[in-house]
Design a protein around this nucleic acid. Structure first.
Lengths: 152, 152
DNA sequence: AGCGGATGATTGCCAGCGCAACTATTGCAG
DNA sequence: CTGCAATAGTTGCGCTGGCAATCATCCGCT
């Protein structure tokens, strides 16, 4: 039976989406409660900060955090209103804009980082030994390399 | 530095959420286009069908697919309207309801199953060999066992 | 028996996000 | 150099789902 051959692999898929839902939900709750920061905001800030310059074109940022273009527009509207990011026109392409992290944005992400890491640890990493983490990374990298628009 | 020790592990976490977003997004698009069925609908139908009886209490179903109680109520409203499920009062607890898959629901999930599997294969499983799948399953099971409300 | 806190499900309300349509700009083809 | 398809970003609109409040029912305790 095809179903029997496939069942273990499909089972792994089910574990994957279920784990994601459970863990992200818990982490989101913690981040909101303890840092007063939605997970998506943290991810955007962390992503911008990691560039050094602290800025990224809208589309690139959208791909990074896997959002639609409209999604990233609105997300940045909110974060800009909160003073965590700014928009900067792109000098060599007048259609384009940079999302730029502000000093307040940097402070915010710095302050939230330990709590974020604690949450990831608490709900996910603590259950995995080094071999697990390596295997996970190896497997997911293969998927990402093939499926992800840009291999960040 | 703490950051250096942790970086590989956090990196694995980032791969995890990014992979989920990318793959689920692609699968969702495919399911909608090819089966005319949102992924969540498929998951609910598949979960109900797997019980044999074809029914589950609302709360149990909500936990299964990792939805809030209100979320599952509305999802079932829509699916009931489409004739794929029904609500059945629970005889020994008059507060409770069963979500029951209808014959049409069974047909629908049967018809969608191959396409769903193809999508999971296409966007995820094809990149993983058996060792990857086993390692993934082993790692995620540990997380689920500890973090999941009920270990389905 | 009967009260009080816990539990099952639904509802009001609102935030978040995607799709498609739109505007502005770019850059390639002829 | 002109025109036209492609691309960057925003906006109108609608769907989805969560939180908190609500209602009904259950159950443990006295």
């Amino acid at each position: 039976m095809v179903a029997n051959i496939e069942s273990g692999r499909l089972e792994a898929w089910r574990s994957f989406i279920r784990t994601h839902s459970v863990v992200v939900r818990a982490l989101e709750r913690d981040m909101q409660a303890e840092q007063g920061l939605p997970l998506t905001w943290y991810e955007v800030l962390a992503r911008l900060e990691r560039t050094g310059e602290g800025r990224l074109r809208m589309q690139v940022l959208a791909d990074s955090v896997v959002f639609s273009r409209s999604g990233i527009t609105r997300l940045l509207d909110r974060m800009e209103e909160a003073g965590l990011v700014e928009r900067q026109p792109c000098s060599h392409d007048r259609r384009g804009w940079y999302a730029v992290i502000t000093p307040k944005g940097r402070e915010t992400v710095e302050r939230a980082r330990p709590g974020h890491f604690r949450g990831v640890q608490q709900h996910f990493l603590r259950y995995l030994d080094d071999a697990d983490v390596r295997a996970l990374q190896a497997a997911l990298s293969k998927v990402l390399a093939a499926e992800s628009p840009l291999l960040q």
